[in-house]
Simulated scan of single mutants.
Amino acid sequence: MELPASVWELERDRSLTSSTRMECDLMIAKKPNRHEQKTRETREQLLLAAETVFVRDGYEKADLLEIAKLAGRTKGAIYAQFKSKEEVFLALVEKHALQRRALMRERLAESSTVEGNLAALRAYYVGLAEDDVFGMLMLEFRLYTIRHPDVRERLAELYKSLVPANEEEVYTALLGPAVKGSDGISRATAIHTAFMMQYALQVQMKFEPEVFQSTSPKVIAGRIFDSLFALPK
């Protein structure tokens, strides 16, 4: 089943958050001078340190001074780049999410059929089983939103930049129609459920590692994917 070109147009980038727009502008601008290059390097060092601290301690207990020390910087260096701990956290989540989205699009670009797309998405999904850093960050992102409903509006722009418009239309075109009937699950629901189950699996494997010693996380992830993305017979 060949996919129309418009399918790929449906999934094109839409609005990005201000921090992402800034980074994109920098990427296409002229070669950075020494000061600009140093600023970028500092930002990357801070985000790398923030990744360690947020994954280890969670958002609530994460300390900016600890992040600065781990990066070999001062706390002032953080505030020169970010306005708050929340902004550091969201920049980190966005960085990982955009990297993952780019990888998924790269995999999907190699296929032009529904069957090929399902195989590519499955390979991508199974590969995530061993990326517990991304899983922990995305879980922390959701927990933060639940615990702080007052920030949901601020997070809406970030979320919109990570999820395609007209989700069901896009996912159906890429992956084929969902199974109909009372047992059917829409493609958008399957996508969101699959990734949340992946993140939950990673947490459970850390909580009870002995239970999973004899089974590869990739095997479990593959079973989850197959159960959610079956094509109609």
Score class of each variant (00 low, 15 high):
V53H: 00
V53Q: 00
F54K: 06
V55D: 01
V55N: 00
R56M: 08
D57I: 11
D57W: 10
Y59E: 11
E60N: 13
K61R: 12
A62N: 03
D63E: 15
L64Y: 03
E66Q: 10
E66F: 04
I67P: 04
I67Q: 03
L70Y: 10
A71P: 02
A71I: 05
A71F: 00
A71G: 09
G72H: 06
G72Q: 10
R73A: 04
T74Y: 02
T74C: 05
T74A: 08
K75G: 10
K75L: 09
K75P: 05
G76A: 15
A77K: 04
I78H: 02
Y79N: 04
Y79T: 04
Y79E: 02
A80E: 12
Q81T: 15
F82S: 07
K83A: 15
F89K: 03
F89R: 06
L90S: 09
A91G: 11
A91T: 15
V93A: 08
E94P: 01
K95S: 13
K95H: 11
H96L: 01
A97F: 13
L98A: 09
L98W: 03
Q99N: 13
R101V: 10
A102H: 15
L103D: 06
M104I: 09
M104F: 07
M104H: 03
R105V: 02
E106M: 06
R107W: 02
A109M: 15
E110Q: 15
E110P: 03
S111W: 06
S111F: 08
S112R: 02
T113N: 09
V114Y: 01
V114A: 06
V114L: 02
V114K: 00
E115C: 05
E115W: 08
G116H: 02
N117F: 01
A119P: 00
A119Q: 04
L121W: 07
L121E: 09
R122G: 03
R122E: 05
R122I: 05
A123H: 04
A123T: 10
A123W: 01
Y124S: 02
Y125I: 12
Y125R: 09
Y125T: 06
V126K: 00
V126M: 03
L128G: 05
D131P: 07
D131K: 06
D132S: 14
V133Q: 06
F134D: 07
F134R: 02
F134I: 13
M136P: 01
M136C: 14
M138E: 12
M138R: 14
F141V: 03
L143W: 12
L143P: 03
Y144D: 07
Y144C: 07
R147S: 12
R147N: 14
P149M: 10
D150F: 02
V151E: 14
V151W: 09
V151M: 12
R152N: 15
R152E: 11
E153A: 06
R154N: 14
R154P: 04
A156E: 12
S161M: 10
S161D: 13
L162C: 11
L162D: 03
V163A: 06
V163M: 11
P164V: 11
A165S: 15
N166H: 14
